[in-house]
Amino acid sequence: MISVIVRRVLESLTVLLGIAILIFLIGEVVGDPARLMLPMDASQETYEAFRRERGFDRAIHVRFLEYLGGVVTLDFGDSLRSGVDAKSLVLRAFVPTLLLAFTTQLVALLIAVPVGTVAGMRPNSFANRLTSTLSIVSISVPTFWAGMITISVFAVSLRLLPTSGYGALHFFVLPTFALALGITGRLAEVVRASVQEQMTSQYVKTARAKGVPERRIVFGHVLRNAMGPVLTVSGDEFATLIGGATVIEVLFGWPGIGYLTVGAIEGRDLPVVQASVMMTATAIVGLNAIIDACYGRIDPRVRRRR
């Protein structure tokens, strides 16, 4: 067990190291940071002095090691624009993003699992076809469009909910709906297909031959086995949400990672971009570890293989 965890951590660190290298290289490619930080009309002397002062004139490997040291100690430097520590900026933005991701995922699962299960239990029923059709419709609606329509209907015309902003529960309703719409559709379709497939398996036939009632077959036997693909897809969706639902965050003025990163990219605020990408990557790697552990919970065959 210990060795499994150690190996898992080692793997995760390797992935993160790769990402750190990538971020550094991209930073090297996009342009000279000294030019970005100094005013446009700064003289050559000021430029040279600034480069020396900040250490930008040193060899690439020296700067890389220094950068890596920064990553390890979570020190990405100060934001070029606001002068605030990049790490605290990112951490502060992370909370709203995580909250939005959680509520979205929760809403999607709470709708998709029951609906998909009912549809999957009855392969040739109206409910099954209806679920498929609705899923496709909801998947096809672009997130930004869903966001705009909900704002114009519920916030502007009906004045029921705020158009944008972050705070109490009612601020969550519209962005969560806009984000959850497509995810619910995708998940419902996965649940439906997975349950439907499990229902045709031999062990379900065995359960029927044992006289197990249909309801118990679904809840006692099928659901757990059907959850594998559902976990995979919702893991992917969640990872995307953690990375910041950029469009929705910008649309609703949600002070999350996506909002912050877009601003930082526009302002060429390299430390903030680096910090936010690194943080997001760490969160996603952690999420994957959790999902893998969940597979083991669902399917005992996975457990032994590790």
Partner: peptide
């Protein structure tokens, strides 16, 4: 009693 015992049992129970 079915043909394929491996398929006849629920793998996660």
């Amino acid at each position: 009693i079915g043909q394929d015992p491996m398929a006849s049992f629920n793998p996660s129970m």
